[in-house]
Design a protein around this nucleic acid. Sequence first.
DNA 1: TATGAATGAGTGTTCATTCAT
DNA 2: GATGAATGAACACTCATTCAT
Lengths: 214, 214, 214, 214
Amino acid sequence: MATRSARAKRTSVRETVRSESRAAYREAILVAAERVFGRLGFHDAKMADIAAEAGVAAGTLYNYFKNKDQVFESILKRGQSRLKEELAPALELAEPLARLRAITETSLRFLEENGALFMIHIRRGGLEARSLRHIGEGNDDLHEFHEQLVREAFVQAIESKQLRQDIPADELAGLFSGLTEAMIFAWIRRGCPKNLAAKTDLIFDMFLQGAHPK
Amino acid sequence: MATRSARAKRTSVRETVRSESRAAYREAILVAAERVFGRLGFHDAKMADIAAEAGVAAGTLYNYFKNKDQVFESILKRGQSRLKEELAPALELAEPLARLRAITETSLRFLEENGALFMIHIRRGGLEARSLRHIGEGNDDLHEFHEQLVREAFVQAIESKQLRQDIPADELAGLFSGLTEAMIFAWIRRGCPKNLAAKTDLIFDMFLQGAHPK
Amino acid sequence: MATRSARAKRTSVRETVRSESRAAYREAILVAAERVFGRLGFHDAKMADIAAEAGVAAGTLYNYFKNKDQVFESILKRGQSRLKEELAPALELAEPLARLRAITETSLRFLEENGALFMIHIRRGGLEARSLRHIGEGNDDLHEFHEQLVREAFVQAIESKQLRQDIPADELAGLFSGLTEAMIFAWIRRGCPKNLAAKTDLIFDMFLQGAHPK
Amino acid sequence: MATRSARAKRTSVRETVRSESRAAYREAILVAAERVFGRLGFHDAKMADIAAEAGVAAGTLYNYFKNKDQVFESILKRGQSRLKEELAPALELAEPLARLRAITETSLRFLEENGALFMIHIRRGGLEARSLRHIGEGNDDLHEFHEQLVREAFVQAIESKQLRQDIPADELAGLFSGLTEAMIFAWIRRGCPKNLAAKTDLIFDMFLQGAHPK
DNA sequence: TATGAATGAGTGTTCATTCAT
DNA sequence: GATGAATGAACACTCATTCAT
């Protein structure tokens, strides 16, 4: 029994090691893929590029992912869970505008730290959606999640009269998200300089006060 | 001499016909390519798809364009000149905010009527820039042109105290363009419903008044 | 009847003109094709190139020749008849070695004046024979014709004891033709300088005397 | 450490196998390509033909050669090194005419065993030069190498009064090379019968004695 | 399981040939 | 008959995927 147990344990340990090794490989591949997809886009990124960036052989990719599409999809999913984790503290805030500000700042900071991921996400979510629709059908979309959070904050803020009453919450939320995204696009176009998160104040100021002279 | 004249005329007519036919073919190909690129993106759009959409043989494309890249580029250029034409009346307006409103409305209307073109343009200008940078180097970019117009309007509006003085014109212009683009992205995400141009008022209202309750 | 006759005559004249025009077109095309094939080789020479060189439209070529192969073939045939014409005086000579010398000199001069044709011919006859065998099957070949003339001269020269008796006429003829062709190849490799025909003396001297010191 | 060593050895063995396999594939492709190019010429030989002849998939060719041109070039280079190897013993001979005879005999034998290669080489060096000039610029050419050897032998033979003094070494060497090449062309035209190398004696006899009766 | 070479379907492009004018 | 644009078969080459080791 001792022997059995020992063997079982050894096996278990070995499997743990294996499993950790598997996880490490998988992670390395995803990190590499994120960089490569972010740099080159879906089509120009070759499986060979990703393998090279990850320091593994091309065939190895297929031990961890079914195909190129699934590598792509996995990056998105991984990014989604990471952002969700980082957003958790912000969601604790009860005050809707403060929560909105925290969500925005967190998202922008996340963006700065995960530029490549964002490139991938935005391409897929916003623009290549149609051509890549076959990828990730039915995944809960990060966009949806994010917009839902923003929408809730807006509904509450309007209810508590902190915002104009004459524009529906959805429309307002859309404009806000839009303004944020616009900031992001401008930031990308400028080559992703530092301190995107610091733009949160500007976004809020403009969004709340407008451009009219006071 | 009558004969010569007649022959000359016939030739001339024939050449006109031919020339018109060439232009018609070229146009048909561009229209088809615009649709296909808009639908599938640069990479997924195959020359065969474009040819099929245009109702010609694949080889025919190469009688009008050197290669796939040049088809793509030509769409952009064609779109640019068309938008420039349509913007001309708006540029006559002397009053900066009125001009800005006209530019915005015209651009949005143009967009509605040329959704596919815009998809193409934005993909290239904003996002696929890196992977497609080899295409169209040195074209005067529509983005640049548009942003220049907006920037000028802002400089004048700030000078005439019609806008807040505490934010630089460039920043304001960026935010405005951003807000507009955001509207556009939201519109695209919603599947390009009718009446995008009507959103001009909302954009201006929000941009000028802000979201604060009055 | 006068009318008929007149009409008939007019028709006939017109047909002559037409026929002359046809011949002129055909000739122009062949001249152009000879230059282009000579310059680029069979495969790299495009029908469009030939048409351009001839100053006609691509389609016109097909009013005179069934296809590219036939253009090629026609050049060879035309060259063959021209060389045969030029060789006629040489063939009058009764004395075999004098005749051989005249044939050689004439052939070399012809070569210098028809370099392009020769390039075509040699490519086809000597080297691309296998790959181009589908062309001109069963034509009486210029090579064959030429070698036949040479062979006859050798048979007679050996019979009249003007040449070594210990080597069969065929072998000797082959060597002589070979030496001549070798001269030609060297000449081509040197870029076709002037005065190839003047090498006739050297060929004969070497061929008859050998390289041994006297 | 034993394990490491064992693993290292295994790896090394595996790599040797792989490396041998790679070399074998490469060689098989070159052999196939040599046959196909020799049979059809550069243009008519399709990559698919070569792949089929080698018994591999078309794509495999591109794991070993960058493109069709490079396959072609590699054949030439391989042939050059092989001939150079085979010529080495002949070059040991101090006596110029004996050396020349050995060089000639070796070359002819090489030719018989590598007819396809020669077809390829001669097409490129002599005739398709112009259209294929883009291939292999700057390779040390087999022709040049061979002619240099011949030229040296002639200079020495003339110096030692073994040959006529009235014709410059270059000219004589050219004629000799020419005679040899002529023999080769005749041999090709006759369909590459056996025993080409045996013609060395005939070449030398004719070259030295000439065709005059003694 | 990692490897990396083999595979072959798929694509952009060329060009001989056809055909409407 | 001349024209020159349309045609589409053909081909070099790429790359995601498979598989023997």
